[in-house]
């Protein structure tokens, strides 16, 4: 069996079958459920407010997906090191590139599960509103680029730091910083610094695309710049993860 596939399958299995993975998914679904139940209290939303709700749910799914990816990524190499399973892995014929590719496959499986978990919530709040299909498609596109980028970044840190704790803490700080537009809202990001931050932040790119598509019903052509930012984030973090794992020291 291809070692990349084998590692990816093992990582995916840990998410879907292990008690720890299921507990994480349970916690994430609980967050989504509480958010959705809070929305039930207001049933007289206008169509536009409904689009706002769909946008909020999309942002939350992306943020939770990124958090999940960060936890998986921070544990990917440093966790193996702490559990003593890294050396046997490196002593096999598997190359560092194959290891990191396999771990990335695990990240992709984690996000797929998170995305599928989020779809019923998206349908529940948005099926009587506008642009639900676009919301599902754009969450797949922008969510994948952003979330996997966070996972790859954490994976790179996990290879560079010797402990899961340090890798996780650093990754979480980066996640908090980049996901802050979810709390700040577009109105508070109008300063020069805010605009600059928005222009380079992949999370902002995703949120702005969600806003543009779901609330303002704008076409794909408007999202090209945002897509480029999210794509650049994925490519850069993938490169960083590859480079970090290649420089791995026992």
């Amino acid at each position: 069996m291809n070692p990349v596939w084998w590692i990816a399958r093992k990582e995916s299995g840990e998410i879907l079958v292990s008690g720890r993975g299921l507990a994480w998914l349970f916690a994430l679904s609980l967050v989504m459920s509480v958010l959705s139940l809070l929305l039930v209290s207001n049933t007289e939303l206008s169509l536009l407010d409904n689009a706002q709700v769909v946008y909020m749910v999309m942002g939350t799914i992306t943020a939770l997906g990124a958090l999940f990816a960060v936890v998986l990524g921070a544990d990917a190499v440093a966790g193996e090191r702490e559990r003593g399973s890294l050396m046997p892995l490196l002593l096999t014929s598997v190359t560092p590139s194959e290891i990191v590719s396999g771990k990335m496959g695990g990240q992709a499986a984690g996000w797929t599960v998170m995305y599928l978990l989020g779809l019923p919530y998206l349908w529940a709040v948005g099926s009587s509103g506008q642009n639900l299909l676009q919301a599902i498609a754009y969450l797949a596109l922008f969510g994948t680029l952003t979330v996997l980028g966070f996972g790859f970044f954490a994976l790179g840190l996990s290879a560079r730091f010797r402990s899961v704790r340090t890798a996780l803490l650093t990754s979480l700080i980066a996640w908090m910083l980049l996901a802050s537009p979810l709390l700040l809202g577009p109105g508070l990001r109008q300063s020069a610094v805010g605009k600059w931050f928005d222009a380079v932040n992949p999370f902002s790119a995703s949120l702005n695309a969600f806003d543009s598509v779901v609330i303002d019903s704008q076409p794909f052509a408007v999202q090209a710049g945002r897509l480029a930012v999210a794509l650049a984030w994925l490519v850069l973090t993938a490169w960083y993860a590859m480079r970090s794992v290649r420089k791995l020291e026992l």
């Binding site: 349970f26 409904n50 349908w123």
Partner: peptide, 26 residues
């Protein structure tokens, strides 16, 4: 005319059902 946009009869089964299914899996 008003059109309910966030309906509890859609959200409740999802909000309670999905964590329930994961709990059952565990």
């Amino acid at each position: 005319r008003r059109k309910p946009t966030v309906e509890s009869n859609r959200i409740l089964p999802i909000a309670l059902g999905i964590p329930g299914v994961i709990l059952a899996l565990m």
